[in-house]
Write a protein that binds this DNA or RNA. Structure first.
Length: 659
DNA sequence: ATAGGGTTAG
């Protein structure tokens, strides 16, 4: 065909002709930085076009580039085109596997390398040992150890350090210690000490870890970080903090370990406080910091701070990964802002099982079952495999709105369509779903037919259902069993007592209270928190230590007087005690969520909702109270109890009184 | 030839 017959190309193509094939030096430079899978293909194509695919130098660089780009599968395709791979190619390919969590493949290739009689060098072993440790393949580890010695690398600190780490990962810390003790004193460096200490920590041998830390001739920041983290994990946050304060210099890992320690120990306010201190230090938070601190915001319902962290992430270009997105979704959800959680979900670049499950759980908590099902359908459409956690979320979504049939269907789907075995928590959800909807017998049958030992929580779920449906007889049976299982758990007594009170059985309620006293079981105090001006305030039932208590109680009394004139009468059946009506009313009137609500009305802007987090379930009376506040004070209130969210607006609640 | 090994935070 004559070229002249073709119309001239559009103007933009004339201005941007296709890029010329890169020259050899340009190609080499291009191969030195990470590439997307598509870019990798293009580069590979260039190599083929210029007949460089069989040039060892370029093949080698391409293989390294695949590792840089985290593409082990593509790397393997390149590797397989090399006729007789040299030590260099094996080392690069094994490393690529190991660094991308393809440990089995890394070890297999190491085996192939040896069977092809390609020599390993001192660089091969640490990489292979890391994969062995990750898989905890003891036998292989010992075999590699033998080969390390045979090849004459038994005296190298680095090889020995890798061996120590491998043995400790495999649970063989005493063998690790033997390797450690045999390292010559003159070459024993700080890293092999750190590895041994961390090895003890991995195996739960905290005493030996601390002993070795104390014996160290010199320490670096990692040594300190390891022990700070250890004390945080084993529950001695006080000691962790002492070491944190004592260490000569702190890096971002030090701060992260300490913040995580606080969160792990349930000391959320301390975690936030430390995060604030970090702002004043010379260390910048990174993505691990925000993943550690966001759950603390979530627990406390600190939405303002959570939002601040979200914008901090954007402003400071903190690396956004799927963990950060998941932590944000969880935080927004727990702080009562489903819309923001949904926004993060929709914009998330990478969506995996964990992120989707978190979104489903959040929607479930807020009673948005349909939307939760929608996310599940999205997972099916896009091939994201649901996990056990996904189904916990779906089942909770069903039980919060009473969709019994759909819930039962999801339960069946687990094993039928996804090869997932329902665990005790799934049975718990099923019991909740059935019990709440009034099918108490079926719920009881479910517990009896469970293939595993029913956890006390499952019985507790049935007991709550008995409360909702006023079934005293079944409640007694279940509660007696529960009290036998957990005699010190106040919740069981309180629940049964509430059921008696609700049924008007004051004598029984009183008897139970006496038993509690005799056994020394303390009632867990109700506690509510509210965030005002970036600070979190906590209230306890009948709180009389708050600095502004006078003002708060006056406000609460004003609210109550107003609500009473609109027909509010405290629902005394929620009260635990068998006392005369007045006293009972008093106990109810000062529940912590009411105090928090009064504080919120006093201190916040009319346009924003009042957000409260409560540690126990909200009681019937407080539920009525909040509905009325939302109506007669024209404020919306968002309350999270230990189970779910209640959004109060214009006199009604998002749970439709089904909770 | 080519790159490259061991410790600590979610």
């Amino acid at each position: 065909m004559a070229c002249s017959a073709l119309p001239s190309p559009p103007i933009h193509q004339q201005l941007n002709p296709p890029p010329p094939t890169p020259t050899h030096p340009q190609l080499l430079t291009l191969l030195k930085s990470p590439k997307t899978p598509t870019q990798l293909k293009t580069l590979h194509a260039h190599l083929i076009k210029t007949s460089l695919t069989h040039n060892h130098l370029f093949q080698g660089q391409l293989l390294l580039c695949c590792n840089l780009s985290n593409s082990p599968a593509y790397a393997r395709r390149v590797f397989d085109t090399v006729p007789n791979p040299t030590q260099f190619f094996y080392n690069a390919m094994i490393k690529c596997y190991s660094e991308n969590d393809h440990h089995k493949e890394a070890i297999e290739l190491y085996g192939q390398m040896r069977s092809c009689s390609v020599n390993c060098d001192s660089f091969t072993f640490p990489v292979v040992l890391r994969s062995v440790g990750s898989l905890r393949w003891r036998g292989i580890g010992e075999e590699v150890h033998g080969y390390v010695v045979k090849m004459g690398f038994g005296g190298l600190v680095i090889a020995n350090t890798a061996l120590i780490d491998m043995y400790c990962c495999c649970g063989m810390w005493s063998v690790g210690r033997q390797v450690f003790d045999r390292i010559g004193e003159r070459v024993k460096d700080v890293i092999c000490w750190n590895t041994m200490i961390a090895g003890y920590v991995k195996n739960g041998n905290f005493l030996s870890a601390k002993e070795l830390f104390d014996e160290m001739p010199e320490r670096n920041v990692s040594s300190w970080n390891t022990v700070v983290d250890m004390y945080g994990k084993c529950g001695d946050v006080g000691m962790a903090r002492r070491l944190f304060d004592e260490m000569p210099a702190r890096d971002v890992i030090s701060w992260n370990a300490m913040i995580s320690g606080y969160v792990h120990g349930g000391r959320f306010s301390d975690a936030l406080e430390l995060f604030r201190m970090m702002q004043g230090s010379d260390v910048k938070p990174n993505e691990v910091t925000v993943v550690a601190v966001l759950p603390a915001c979530g627990h406390l319902g600190a939405l303002d701070l959570g939002q601040w962290i979200h914008s901090y992430i954007k402003r400071n270009r903190v690396k956004m990964d799927v963990y950060v997105d998941t932590a944000l979704i969880d935080m927004y959800g727990k702080c009562g802002s489903v819309e923001d959680a949904r926004g993060v979900f929709d914009n998330a670049e990478m969506k995996d099982t964990f992120l989707c499950s978190t979104m489903i759980e959040v929607l479930a908590m807020h009673g948005k079952a349909e939307e939760a099902f929608g996310v599940f359908n999205y997972m099916r459409r896009t091939g994201i495999r649901p996990s056990n956690i996904t189904f916990v979320g779906l089942l909770k979504a069903c039980s919060h709105v009473g969709l019994v049939d759909i819930g039962v269907e999801y339960f069946g789907m687990m094993s039928k369509d996804f090869e997932l075995v329902p665990k005790v928590e799934h049975y718990g959800c099923l019991v909740d779903l059935l019990g709440r909807a009034g099918h108490l017998e079926k719920a009881y049958e479910t517990i009896k037919s469970m293939p595993m030992e029913p956890h006390p929580i499952v019985w507790g779920t049935l007991l709550s259902a008995c409360r909702i449906h006023c079934n005293v007889k079944l409640a007694e049976e279940v509660a007696l069993h529960l009290i036998e299982l957990e005699p010190q758990n106040c919740g069981h007594y309180v629940l049964l007592s509430n059921i008696y009170s609700k049924a008007g059985k004051w004598n029984e309620a009183a008897k139970l209270r006496k038993i509690m006293k005799e056994k020394g079981v303390m009632k867990k105090p109700g506690c509510s928190s509210i965030e005002v001006d970036h600070s979190v305030y906590e209230f306890f039932a009948g709180d009389c230590i708050h600095p502004r208590r006078k003002e708060i109680y006056e406000m609460l009394d004003k609210i109550i007087t107003r609500l009473k004139s609109e027909g509010y009468s405290p629902k005394t059946s929620s009260a635990l005690h068998d006392v005369d009506i007045d006293e009972k009313e008093q106990a109810l009137l000062y529940h912590s969520e009411k105090l928090a609500a009064a504080f919120g009305l006093l201190n916040s802007n009319h346009k924003t909702p009042i957000r409260i987090v409560k540690n126990l379930r909200i009681c019937d009376d407080c539920h009525v109270f909040m509905k009325m506040v939302s109506k007669y004070f024209g404020r919306s209130l968002i309350i999270r109890d230990c189970n779910r969210f209640h959004h109060f607006k214009d006199g009604s609640c998002s749970c439709c009184d089904y909770w």
